[in-house]
Amino acid sequence: MNLNFLEFEQPIAELEAKIDELTYIGDDADVNINDEIAKLKAKSEALTESIFSGLTPWQISQLARHPQRPYTMDYIIRIFTDFHELHGDRCFADDRAIIGGVARLEGIAVMVIGHQKGRDTKEKLERNFGMPRPEGYRKALRLMNMAARFKLPILTFIDTPGAYPGIGAEERGQSEAIARNLFEMAELKTPVICTVIGEGGSGGALAIGVGDRTLMLQYSTYSVISPEGCASILWKSAEKAEDAAEALGITSTRLKELGLVDRIIGEPLGGAHRDVDAIAGNIKQALAEELGQLTTASIDDLLENRYQRLMAYGEFTER
């Protein structure tokens, strides 16, 4: 089993392995097998298309946390120039599960803030698997307030399993840190665009997710609880995660239908990790367009629209 492919992608993995093998033989054999390779490549593409056209929410949630999925830093280096990372909450520590700093988007100075996961074991630990502690949220808030002061638009990238459930995190006020961000982000005097690039894990995601626009990558997810967590509470069995993923409606298309997401950014065939430059290009274009629209409004209108947008969340009846 090829670990760079998910379970439902294994047929694609097998074809790709065959192609690799043939390419290798083709290099030193006299026979021309280029035709055969081209045929297999076309077949692999068709297979990928057919598998990806019918993904279930559970499969999408696996893609959202694919080990090869691009993380915030992968996008920062492709989308922005002049990125300067800024560290620390000025109170306790520098939480490496959230990164932030100033940068330029097509020449415009902006503040970029995002969850950061690690690629190898060492970095995974350093980044705490992308699960921030209170100091991470407080660093984010410090940078956001600074951005508002210097009139820099804020672009956030969301990719976390959730806020870290640990003893120290509770001692230092995880709840308060998240709540404070929700409160202050509602009235930041600068445009805020939030993009879910992988896992949008509950309050830990929302704590850098309040703004004027919510964008989602095609195969990212956004949910009040992980499918596994939901399954173990409501179905009393983590095995039911697949059912929970379906019921929770965590995919970009479902959330767009429900009016909770403004825009979906299309991913390359096979997912963002198959062509990081392409997806980075798509994100850059979407951010530039949305930012262009938001900067035409006055700050007062921007804040009023943001407030009304937040107040409109919710479905109920009234007699």
Partner: peptide
């Protein structure tokens, strides 16, 4: 689901 999560943002705002 996500409607509930958004109540956190709504009430805080």
């Amino acid at each position: 689901a996500l409607f509930s999560l958004m109540q956190m943002a709504k009430t805080s705002a």
